[in-house]
Design a protein around this nucleic acid. Structure first.
Length: 214
DNA sequence: CCATGATCATTA
DNA sequence: TAATGATCATGG
């Protein structure tokens, strides 16, 4: 079994900067939306391949491994900015309640994430180029860590006091708790699926990360 | 079956 | 345009 370290993954990814992701997707046999359906996750999947990972897109084991995320960028007033927030990890209400920031999956993942900026060409985009690869090193930005922790604590406290249901995407300056579920109906019961949430990095945080990295 | 990948839709 | 909430295909 081949072990790919973060450094190796970054190196691998950087070799592909500027390349057309769709071509690569075809090459790696990853469904984009050739089937007529929309796979929102294909960019993420292809990046994992490029990094040298075999598969394993689902459920990150522990924290032993790094995380690979892609972020859409677009031009606003001639500047390249993150288009969307970025999912960090699912929120497990019980864990959030019991776990402090520095022990949380959220933080463990955040500090291990490799960010990939990807050009966004509009909805249903079939093309995308890798713009930039950055890894997060917060060690130099003490203040930012504190603020992120503050957001985490705020969300955590809200969960404890008001319950999981009361969380919204409005909370947090750098990170937020957005809904993130399978969506739609449960095909069996026809009931609404339960709402789940995940930590998201706001665009301003993503921006800062890329600024820090460069 | 459901968590994970991340984007889409809607409203202000 | 920005922000929030909702949604989908995929793979194990």
């Amino acid at each position: 079994m081949k072990i790919i370290t973060r450094a190796t993954a970054i190196k691998n990814l950087k070799k592909h900067i500027g390349k057309d992701l769709r071509k690569l997707a075809l090459q790696y046999k990853i469904t984009t939306y050739e089937t007529g359906k929309q796979n929102k996750g294909w960019k993420g999947l292809i990046l994992e391949k490029l990094a040298g990972l075999e598969n394993n897109v689902s459920k990150a084991p522990n924290g032993l491994s790094y995380e690979l995320k892609s972020v859409s960028f677009r031009y606003v007033k001639n500047k390249l900015v993150p288009k969307e927030t970025m999912a960090i990890t699912m929120i497990n209400p019980k864990e959030l309640e019991e776990t402090e920031f520095f022990d949380s999956h959220c933080w463990n993942k955040l500090k291990a994430i490799i960010f990939c900026a990807v050009m966004w060409h509009g909805k249903n985009s079939e093309n995308a180029e890798i713009l930039k690869v950055a890894s997060l090193d917060f060690a130099e930005d003490d203040e930012l860590i504190k603020e992120i922790k503050a957001d985490y604590d705020f969300i955590r406290e809200k969960l404890i006091k008001h319950g999981f249901e009361s969380l919204t995407g409005k909370d947090g300056k750098w990170i937020q708790a957005r809904t993130k579920g399978t969506g739609g109906m449960n095909p069996r019961t026809k009931e609404r699926r339960p709402i789940t949430r995940a930590f998201y990095a706001r665009t301003c945080l993503v921006k800062k990360i890329f600024e820090t990295a460069s």
